[in-house]
Simulated scan of single mutants.
Amino acid sequence: MADLRAGLIGLGMMGRHHARVLGSLEGVRLVAVADPAGDPHGVAGDRPLLRSVEELVAAGLDYCVVAVPTGLHESVGLALADAGVHALIEKPLAHDVSASTALVEAFEAAGLVGAVGHIERFNPALQSLRARLEAGDLGSVYQVATRRQGPFPARIADVGVVKDLATHDIDLTAWVTQQAYSAVSAQTAHRSGREHEDLVAATCRLFGGTVTSHLVNWLSPLKERVVVVTGEKGAFVADTITADLTFHANGEVATTWDAIARFRGVSEGDTVRYAIPKPEPLRTEHEHFRDAVQGKESDIVTLAQGRQTVRVAEAMIASAKSGTVVEL
């Protein structure tokens, strides 16, 4: 089988990583890249450096990776769908639900593979966590708490922290628990003088009854990417920076010290940090999308799933503005 001809539009901070992976991905040939602002990281190499999605399509593509600013996802994605080109679109899918729906409908109507680059799904710690939850290792899931905070990334200008960062936690929470969001309550803040929010604290409920909380900001010198899932048998802690997964089991040994026994709801049991393979999440994401384009079995984040994540993100913003719980 001939290699798939791939293109890349958007050569910023994320685009350079896509170029690196596409340039070494088995079964794929990166034939051209495009960005009207040029190639600041020098990723084009000997490939044509183009300026528009139309020029990129004319190079003859099987699929394209879209890493342009969020506000351009709709127009670039629709151009690719109209040209019959499969697309992997960076997260979030689009700047709002309406634009997301336009993309979902265009790719479905054209019979094309469309996916969203929610890279956290492919983090080894979360891949292992989902498999263990599905196998019943935790029993009933009670709560998911995420913390995603760090310094402001200069790459972001057109959306706030909810659509840029919190969408990671929205998607991964729904995915690892296999439960959709049913209600959202959130508070946001503007502390850096920018148009968009730079802090959000949200509490949510999933249709399976699980309660979630998400703390996300661009205001901390401490970089954290942590997911804690608490349930019937203990708690899993996933650190997606190190791709470590740890399990804290509820204890099976009775606590005989009465004062402590009355204070603790459960006792402390064994702690296990799993030894798991740690392939690069971005490469795994690309491998799955390549396989989907080839018609093979794969696990991609569909455009419909990406649209639902945007819907929850917009519910967070609406809740913060109205001071009410938004039902989904």
Rank of each mutant, 00 (worst) to 15 (best):
29 R>N: 14
166 A>F: 12
260 I>H: 06
302 T>K: 02
168 H>A: 11
126 L>W: 00
285 E>S: 13
125 A>C: 06
219 L>I: 05
168 H>V: 08
233 K>I: 04
10 G>S: 06
285 E>F: 08
62 D>I: 03
58 A>M: 07
251 G>D: 09
57 V>M: 04
205 R>H: 07
266 V>M: 11
6 A>L: 02
212 T>P: 01
216 V>P: 00
164 D>L: 12
318 A>C: 05
164 D>W: 12
177 T>L: 15
244 D>T: 13
224 E>R: 14
325 V>W: 01
270 D>G: 13
141 V>D: 06
153 P>E: 06
290 R>A: 12
153 P>K: 05
115 A>M: 06
124 P>L: 09
183 A>G: 09
54 E>P: 12
206 L>P: 11
134 E>S: 13
198 D>I: 09
204 C>K: 03
99 A>F: 08
22 L>S: 05
24 S>E: 11
239 D>N: 15
95 H>L: 15
295 G>F: 01
57 V>E: 07
321 K>S: 15
18 H>D: 05
11 L>Y: 05
236 F>C: 01
176 V>Q: 00
67 A>C: 03
152 F>I: 11
320 A>K: 01
273 R>C: 12
249 A>W: 06
132 R>A: 06
249 A>F: 10
280 E>R: 00
233 K>Y: 13
17 H>L: 15
197 E>P: 15
187 Q>I: 14
48 P>H: 02
2 A>C: 11
177 T>R: 07
107 F>L: 02
45 G>V: 14
210 T>N: 04
155 R>M: 14
295 G>T: 04
210 T>R: 02
44 A>R: 07
142 Y>F: 09
137 D>F: 00
258 D>G: 06
30 L>K: 09
69 P>F: 03
248 H>A: 15
220 S>Q: 01
9 I>E: 03
289 F>S: 07
228 V>S: 13
223 K>D: 13
89 I>R: 11
316 M>V: 09
254 A>W: 04
200 V>C: 08
119 I>T: 11
13 M>N: 10
253 V>S: 10
52 S>I: 07
204 C>F: 05
182 S>N: 12
23 G>K: 07
160 G>Q: 07
198 D>V: 07
276 I>D: 04
59 A>S: 14
106 A>G: 12
55 E>W: 05
270 D>L: 13
